[in-house]
Design a protein around this nucleic acid. Structure first.
Lengths: 340, 340
DNA sequence: CAGGGCATCCAAAGCGCTTTGGAAACCCAA
DNA sequence: TTGGGTTTCCAAAGCGCTTTGGATGCCCTG
């Protein structure tokens, strides 16, 4: 069933049927009703490709998932982010175009998006310190929103980000106030922007309280359960065992918890743990009293905000870049206590 | 830059340029080279929408993510599955079309895929016992592959699935052989096909060994850390505490492990745990000696297989349905031991 | 009753590509 | 030189939609 067929069935021209369906004012209300009912009856859906060709709009947003060739890691945050963004997209009639590409080919993926006209805008995931993708997208003139930031030049593009620096500064101060001095940092890969900022926040708080951080108690790497376990274990067995951990993700903290239990210690009593919690739907941080004391910021909500921002940018091109800085919420749970 | 412009630059007709780029034989090799170089130089990419319109092929595969309105859960398995499938798609020039829809609207999403001609085929995620989507897709005539199965009628459609029944049968027998009789089952939602089969396997093994399963030691629900914790805790405190747990997912098992630790018990010594392990990249089950004894089956690999199967189906329509039953691999880890 | 204004509808062009049905150029044997 | 077969290229139609630039009929005013 296509427009032509539908219009002959109705005894109207394609023009009128098209206009009726797209809510143009120059068609009589009665006709519009008749058309819409017929469309429903014959379950007619406009051919998106044809529509896109004619209007020049793809009604789709591109997401590129880089599959690193080195570490075989898929970002666990991705599913929740997409779920949030997807809500907004589908409410506005957009859908998602996913490109899974090896990180080497990522640049080309954006180029292809651009010139094949298959998306109206893109979301940039997981920006590094000075991410080359941003310059590329600016050059291509493709609307985009970054989930996170990339280095210092923050005003020239649109982004939605958590205030990672402040979040970790505050979390560290919370631990310092409890009397902890040997605080370990289990961070993400520190060439990623978010991890760098978190480290900065951590260091700023330590220095602010006149505490010198110990290099052996700082780790940056993939945020997996296993690495959390390995490095927490190593630190606990080291020369200067920490009395508290500051951990960049839930999975990593679960690994740390395992190491703590293995060492015969009790979390919350013998040793404190504060985490960053992305509020993933399958790894909820407990009920009323959180398991982990956490700086919480919903990644799903971030997805929603990114999507909304991008759709606005697509609708009104030539606007100045927008920014949205989210503050995390410190939730005190069972995993922290005064130093013993 | 479009075909027309490129062809005038080259002094050739659109036809010839198009044929040169698409490797048709009726164009001289020298011309082809010249054309391809020019395309590269002016970085020309064909407009996908126009191409799709003309060829009738979308070069895209649809994935529908149902967002349940009740439980706000996003399937954590999804990211890894997509990563696997994505590898195959991008190697074949396909990309992914994601629709995030509320579960109520899911049926409509497939209809729209079909009649809007935006995808060449779809993958069905998370099938229930007698999933209505399958009948719908058959009726629509849209090529599809199911990740999992849906009830007993297994021959009439294509699928890739783990042998969940056998996997859990074997895992249960492993525990029975260690002397366990009070074995608890922490399962997924049992209206889902995979969970039903796992339960069947569990029960079959128990009955095969003349052990009557205890209803209070069987739970089916969302596979979150929290629910794993809550129900493991409840079971451990109950009238007939289990000596072993059989758990349907890593996250859930992590919750169970927490409950076990809270009860002052040691996993692997006082109490055994066997899990199903999807081999997610951010929740690896330890290194050489796995943390959990596990029936392991890579969901990423399943994604690859689904994608390959679907692309074949798309390329040769009218073929009989294909099936691929994967056997999980039992890996003995640190979480199991003889009953005490 | 003429003529302007409005509401309603339509024919046809155009989006950028593929593909059909030739046409032109060339080569070679008769 | 001619005729048939190849090779190489092209003009134009068509994919299903939107949108421009009217056309038609109707109502109202003078």
């Amino acid at each position: 069933m296509n427009l032509k067929e539908l219009s002959t069935i109705l005894g109207l021209s394609q023009t009128t049927v098209s206009r009726a369906l797209n809510d143009y004012p120059e068609v009589k209300e009665a006709t519009r009703q008749r058309v819409k009912q017929a469309a429903l009856l014959h379950n007619y859906f406009p051919n998106k490709r044809a529509k896109g060709l004619a209007t020049g709009r793809a009604m789709a947003i591109g997401h590129v998932i880089p599959l690193s060739t080195q570490h075989e890691m898929v970002n666990p945050v991705f599913a929740d982010f997409i779920a949030g963004a997807g809500e907004v997209y589908s409410a506005n009639g957009y859908d998602i175009h996913l490109s899974v590409v090896s990180d080497v080919a990522e640049e080309n993926a954006y180029r292809a998006f651009r010139s094949s006209h298959s998306v109206d805008g893109v979301i940039v995931h997981g920006p590094c310190a000075d991410d080359p993708r941003i310059a590329l997208l600016k050059r291509l003139g493709l609307p985009f929103v970054v989930h996170g930031r990339a280095g210092e030049d923050e005003t020239s593009y649109s982004w939605v980000d958590v205030n990672n620096r402040h979040s970790f500064l505050r979390a560290t101060e919370f631990l310092l106030d409890l009397g902890h001095r040997y605080i370990a940092l289990l961070n993400g890969l520190e060439h990623m922007d978010f991890a760098r900022r978190r480290r900065e926040g951590f260091l700023a708080a330590m220095q602010g309280h006149g505490v010198t951080p110990i290099p052996a108690l700082m780790f940056g790497g993939e945020m997996t359960e296993e690495l959390g376990f390995i490095h927490a274990k190593e630190m606990l067995a080291g020369a200067t065992p920490p009395t508290a951990f500051l951990v960049s993700s839930m999975s990593m903290a679960i690994g740390a918890r395992r190491a703590i239990a293995d060492a015969g210690l009790e979390m919350g009593r013998d040793i404190s743990v504060v985490i960053h919690d992305d509020d993933l739907s399958y790894l909820k941080n407990g009920g009323d009293i959180p398991i982990f004391t956490a700086a919480k910021s919903s990644v799903r909500q971030a997805g929603r905000l990114c999507a909304e921002m991008l759709l606005e940018l697509v609708a009104n091109p030539g606007q100045p870049p927008r920014h949205r800085l989210l503050e995390s919420q410190l939730m005190v749970g069972q995993s922290t206590g005064p130093v013993r």
